[in-house]
Simulated assay, not measured.
Amino acid sequence: MSAMSRRKGAAAERELSKLLSEELGIEIVRNTDPQRVTGGDILTIPGYSLEVKRCESLRRPSWWEQSQRQAARVRLEGVVFYRQSRKPWRALVSAEGGYADVTFEEALDRLRDKLARLYGLYRDAA
C-alpha cells in the first residue's frame, strides 16, 4: 500500500469517526493498531467492528469478506462504510443471505437501534 493510499485511508477514518461521533453522541476512536488484531478500522462502537473504505472502484464483495473475517476474530458485527469522491457515505450491513448496501442514514438507524437495545448507549431524543 502506498503512502498516499495510507494517508487517504487515515483521512477517511478521521472523517467518518467525526461524523459517527456527532450522530451517535459517543466518542469514536480510530484503530491505530498496525496489525488490526483488535478488529476493524474504528473502535469504540460497542458490538461493532467497522471497516472504512475510501475508493473510486467498488469492491463490495471483497470488502464484505474482509470485514466479516475481522469481526469474527473479535466476535463483533462487521460493517463496512465506504465513500467515493464527491458522493455520500454508504454502508454494507448484515442482511439475510449476506449483506445489504444501504445509505449512511440507514446504517445510522441500525447502529442506533442496536446501541439502544443492547447497550443503553443511545436514546432517541424524540
Rank of each mutant, 00 (worst) to 15 (best):
A11C: 02
E13P: 04
W89V: 01
L108E: 07
L115Y: 10
L115T: 07
P61V: 06
Q35W: 08
S62E: 15
E77V: 09
I45M: 13
Q84W: 04
E15L: 06
V29I: 14
T103D: 11
L76M: 09
I28L: 08
S17K: 05
I26W: 05
A71Q: 01
E27K: 14
S21N: 06
I42D: 04
L19Y: 07
A126S: 14
V37Q: 09
Y122R: 10
Q35I: 06
A116M: 12
C55F: 12
A116K: 13
F81E: 01
A10D: 12
V29G: 09
Y119N: 10
S2V: 00
L50C: 09
V93H: 03
Y122T: 05
E96Y: 12
V79H: 01
L19E: 12
R83M: 04
M4T: 12
R110T: 10
N31P: 02
W63M: 03
M4R: 12
G25W: 02
E22W: 07
D109I: 14
S62A: 15
V102R: 07
R83I: 00
S85A: 14
T38K: 10
D33M: 00
D33Q: 03
F104T: 05
P88V: 05
N31G: 02
E105F: 13
K8I: 05
L118R: 15
I42Y: 02
R7I: 03
G9Y: 01
T44C: 14
S94C: 11
R75C: 10
G97I: 03
Q84I: 05
W64E: 00
N31C: 01
L16Y: 00
S62V: 14
Q68P: 00
S21K: 08
T38H: 10
R117W: 10
Y82E: 03
I28R: 04
W64S: 03
D124H: 12
A100G: 08
S85M: 08
G97L: 02
T38Q: 11
Y82I: 00
L121S: 11
E51G: 02
L16D: 00
T38P: 01
A100W: 04
A100H: 05
G78K: 03
N31V: 00
R73C: 03
S85C: 10
P46K: 15
Y119C: 10
V93Q: 03
W64V: 00
K114P: 10
R6S: 07
Y122A: 06
R123N: 12
A125Q: 14
Q84V: 06
P34R: 02
G40R: 01
G9L: 03
E106Y: 08
I45P: 09
A12G: 12
A95K: 09
D33E: 06
G98K: 00
T44P: 08
D113H: 15
R75Y: 09
D41T: 04
K87H: 12
I26K: 08
Q68C: 08
D101P: 06
V74H: 00
